[in-house]
Amino acid sequence: MGNFGLKVDKFIEIFIEQNGYVKVVQGLQNTVFIAVAGLIIGILIGTVIATVKVLPKYKMLPRVLNGVCNLYVALFRGTPIVVQLLVGYYVLVPLTGVNLPGIRVAMIVFGMNSGAYISEIMRSGIQSVDSGQMEAGRAVGLSFGTSMMKIVIPQAVKNILPTLGNEFIALIKETSVVSFIAVADLYMAFNYIGTNSYEFMVPYLVMALIYIVLVLIITLLVRVLERSLKKSDRRN
């Protein structure tokens, strides 16, 4: 432990004097961007899949859609996120010939991945809303989609907010694997500092702290959001 102070000095030297903080800020930004974009895309995809899954199934189209959604969920829950990133970046991007930077690929892949998980969360949320709500919406002449969007899903989201917060936290931590496709996230930034100082103890410790702080901030945000959505509730 004697030279811990020395290690800290070395870290600070690289962090401040050799512009290490620029990398860290950049990495933090990328991490947060990927997680937020992933969550937004995930919620959109998840909502669509969950809606398809609760559609009445006596016509052909909903059944086909349901099959497609099941396949999607099986695919994205059945493979590790790292594999999805690698396939996306090193297989699909060259094959399709689109010119996408790694960070965009990461956003899309994380979005599609969490969409598969959020679809199940959302479905349980939708099913937790009393079926009378949908019936009342249909009875005044609103369509299935409108009743869903305006009445059922707002109530479902309120019910699943804590779980959705969980998903966001998991997402922000999972983004630490994007270095596999050479995206400069938090891990890459601190790895850079470590390699330059031949000293990894302090950088990785600081990295862990930053992740914890990020997660605590999200926890707080979810709590605030939950409180503001509570106004139509009698529970308090």
């Binding site: 709500q133 009445i151 707002p154 109530q155």
Partner: peptide, 29 residues
């Protein structure tokens, strides 16, 4: 949906939209 507009329905368990205020419940549709 077009025909249901001309057919009101009142339920045993009221089924007011829980996420809307009373006024919104009435004017929304």
């Amino acid at each position: 949906n077009v025909h249901r507009r001309h057919m009101g329905m009142v339920f045993q368990h009221f089924n007011l939209f829980n996420n809307k205020t009373v006024l919104q419940n009435v004017m929304m549709a």
